[in-house]
Amino acid sequence: MNSGIFHSTYKADMGLRHTYLEKARWVIFAIFLLAFPFFANRYYLTLANTIGIATIGAIGLNILVGYTGQISLGQGGFMAVGAYTAAILTINMGMPWWASTLVACVVTAIVGALFGIPSLRLKGLYLAIATLASQEIIIWIVTHWDAVTGGVDALVVPAPMLFGITMSSDFNFYWLVWALAGVTALLTANLFRTHIGRAFVAIRDQDIAAEVMGINLFKYKLLSFAVSSFFVGMAGALTAHYRSIVTWERFTVDISVLYLAMIIIGGLGSVRGAFFGATFITLLPATLTNLGRSLKSTFPVVDSILPFIQQAAFGLVIILFLVFEPEGINKMWKDIKDYFRLWPFSY
């Protein structure tokens, strides 16, 4: 039996995964993701696709909030930029979905970096208000710039095509979303084992020391906004292509708060935490709805107050989470792993 992990090369020591168990877990998860669509019905596929999009958006937000410590309430606005850019390019210029998605990512990255400029002067709550302003500004532009965005009316996006296959069905879109989610996760995990990622974390932990260690705060804060917004824009663009209808109501400040809840509940500053949070926040209302439906037959009175119970339960679960595990689901996952690593010896 091993008494520890011993690496004989620096390359192995710096790998993302170290033990066979970790690698095996990863393979099992990948097999599950690959097999899932063949067994799931349309309802579960829809949920899975929603989780996939939310994972990409949450990883993006986590880069900014969890890793770099720049709190942002502009998530909804940045997703709107991604969604509208992708939709407009596809509708008006006939771009294929992948090209419009890529352009949408880049445009959102630029917009994100622009709205990140106040972060050089503002921290914490003040920055939260500044990003809230950016959220409102973006939504205002979207609803008032009729000529381009169609104002408050919905945009209808044509179905995405890949190699002559329509990708808009839940089954086909599943592969698209989860491939991109996988790439996003890998790119982000890689980023945070290089000097750029360390610069982001350094800014979060101790910005003055970071600057004295040679980190250009302005450059790296804006870079963080840009990288984060790139993935947030991707989530927005995928929403547009998946739902095929883009309206501003999908990107209000509620979404910003919901995404913040995802990364706080999942675990700040971790890719895996973003995935956990996205899964949890997406599945919770769905589970509550199903629960309500099954209760309806036995307690007819539930039907009328169901929406209120759902909202209250949603809030309650989040509060309980913050009280009992402020470091999120990722911490619970770590605790479980630690428990079984020593199991059955508790010392």
Partner: peptide
């Protein structure tokens, strides 16, 4: 004024930031 949530190793590596030149894209890859 250390980076409290990083490991000792990462703190030292962060100190070498000025000498590291890798770009954003190649870092992500």
């Amino acid at each position: 004024e250390l980076f409290r949530h990083m490991t000792v190793l990462d703190n030292i590596m962060a100190g070498a930031h000025v000498h590291m030149k890798a770009g954003l894209l190649s870092s992500m890859l």
